[in-house]
C-alpha cells in the first residue's frame, strides 16, 4: 500500500472515530463525553447513560458505519464493472430491486396467514436478507445483461426508471401487506439506520464481511477489466467468471443494507470518486478501504445531522443524502477531470 493510501486510511479512521463519538454523545439527551466513554468501556457511568449509549445510539452508529462502508465498496465494484462513473447499487436499481424482493416476501406472508407472518417475524434477519438478496441479484444480472447491449448513459436511465418502478410497486405492496396484517415497514422506504435492532446487527454485518472479502479477492482482476474486456483477457483474466464473482460480492454487500436500512442513496455513488481522488489511482485494491471509510463517514454524517437535537423531527436520511449528494454528483460530472471524456 502506498504512503498516500495508508495516510488517507489513517486520517479517515480518525475522522470516523471522532464523528462516531460525537454522534454517541448528542441527541435529544446530551451526554458528557466522559459518561459516553464510560458507558462504552463499561466503567463508571449512570444506568441511563449506558442505556442511551449502548442500546439506542450504538446500534445506529454501527449500522451507519457498516452499511455506509458496504455501499462505498459496492460502488467501487459497480463503477469498475460497468466502466461507468455514476454506476452504483442505487443508480442502477439494485437497491430498488432488493426493496421489491422484501416487499413481495412480506406481502406474500401477510396473505398466507398469521403462521407465515409469525415465521417471518421469528426469522426476520435471515429471511428478509435473503429476500433482499434475491431482488438485488435479479436487478444486478438484468443490468449486466443490458449493459452489454446499451451505452452507459442509456443503462443509467434504465436503472433509474426500473428503480422508480420497483419503488412504486413496493409502496403499493406494503400498503396491502399492512392491511392484511403483515408488518408495517414504517420509514423503511426513506432509509434509516435507526431501525436496526442490536440483535439484527450480525445479520447486517456478516454478509457484508463476506462481500468485502470477495471484493478484495476480485480486486486484482477487476483492475485489469478497467482496460476493457479484451485487454483483461489478454492479461489472463477469465472475464465471465470475474463478472459473476464481482456481482456476487455486490449482492452480499448491498442486500443486507437494503433489508435493514432501506435504499440508502448517493453514498455508493460518491464514495468511489472520493477514494480515487485520495488514492491517486483507479486500481481497485487501494480504493476498497478508502471507499469503505468514505462511505461510512458519509452515512454517519447524514445520520448525525438527522439526529442532532432539532426542535422537531423533520429530516429523514435520504432527504439529507439527496440534498447534499445530488449537487455533489452534478459537480463531479461537470468538473472532475477523471470523468471529462465520459461527459
Amino acid at each position: 500500500m502506498s504512503a498516500r493510501v495508508s495516510t488517507s486510511v489513517a486520517v479517515l479512521i480518525a475522522a470516523l472515530g471522532a464523528l462516531a463519538l460525537l454522534t454517541l454523545t448528542y441527541g435529544q439527551i446530551a451526554l458528557p463525553l466522559a459518561d459516553t466513554l464510560g458507558a462504552l468501556t463499561g466503567t463508571q457511568s449512570t444506568d441511563l447513560a449506558r442505556q442511551i449509549v449502548l442500546d439506542i445510539r450504538l446500534p445506529r452508529v454501527v449500522a451507519a458505519i457498516v452499511a455506509g462502508g458496504a455501499l462505498g465498496m459496492a460502488g467501487v465494484l459497480m463503477q469498475a464493472l460497468f466502466r461507468n462513473p455514476v454506476a452504483d447499487a442505487w443508480s442502477l436499481g439494485l437497491l430498488a430491486g432488493g426493496q421489491l424482493g422484501v416487499a413481495l416476501t412480506v406481502t406474500a406472508a401477510a396473505f398466507a396467514g398469521p403462521a407465515a407472518v409469525s415465521f417471518l417475524t421469528l426469522f426476520e434477519g435471515p429471511s428478509i436478507t435473503l429476500a433482499a438478496a434475491v431482488g438485488v441479484a435479479i436487478a444486478a444480472f438484468a443490468m449486466l445483461a443490458l449493459g452489454r447491449r446499451v451505452g452507459a448513459i442509456t443503462l443509467l436511465v434504465i436503472g433509474l426508471m426500473l428503480g422508480f418502478t420497483s419503488q412504486g410497486l413496493t409502496s403499493v405492496l406494503l400498503h396491502f401487506a399492512a392491511r392484511a396484517g403483515g408488518r408495517i415497514y414504517g420509514g423503511w422506504q426513506d432509509a434509516s439506520f435507526a431501525g436496526v435492532a442490536p440483535e439484527a446487527l450480525p445479520w447486517l454485518a456478516l454478509p457484508i464481511l463476506l462481500g468485502a472479502c470477495a471484493a478484495v479477492a476480485t480486486a486484482k482482476s477487476l483492475s485489469s477489466l478497467l482496460l476493457g474486456e479484451t485487454y483483461a483477457r489478454s492479461l489472463g483474466v477469465k472475464v465471465t467468471a470475474l463478472r459473476h464473482a464481482v456481482l456476487a460480492a455486490t449482492v452480499l454487500l448491498v442486500a443486507p443494507v437494503v433489508a435493514f436500512c432501506g435504499p440508502v442513496s448517493f453514498v455508493g455513488l460518491i464514495a468511489p470518486h472520493f477514494a480515487r481522488a485520495l488514492a491517486g489511482t483507479a486500481r481497485i485494491l487501494p480504493l476498497l478501504p478508502l471507499a469503505a471509510l468514505g462511505g461510512a463517514l458519509l452515512a454517519l454524517s447524514g445520520d448525525a445531522i438527522i439526529h442532532a437535537p432539532w426542535e422537531q423531527h423533520f429530516l429523514h436520511l435520504n432527504a439529507i443524502l439527496a440534498i447534499v449528494g445530488a449537487p455533489v454528483v452534478i459537480l463531479i460530472l461537470i468538473f472532475s477531470p477523471a470523468v471529462r471524456q465520459w461527459r
Binding site: 463503477q79 466502466r83 461507468n84 462513473p85 452507459a152 486484482k220 483492475s223 485489469s224 478497467l226 482496460l227 476493457g228 479484451t230 492479461l235 489472463g236 470518486h273 480515487r276 491517486g280 489511482t281 483507479a282 486500481r283 477523471a338 470523468v339 471524456q341 465520459w342
Partner: peptide
C-alpha cells in the same frame, strides 16, 4: 478498441501489464 475508464491514469495502465 477504446474504452472509457473512470479515473484510470497512464501509470496505472502501464503497471497493469505486470499483473
Amino acid at each position: 478498441e477504446r474504452q472509457f475508464n473512470p479515473g484510470l491514469r497512464v501509470d496505472d495502465v502501464i503497471a497493469l501489464a505486470r499483473q
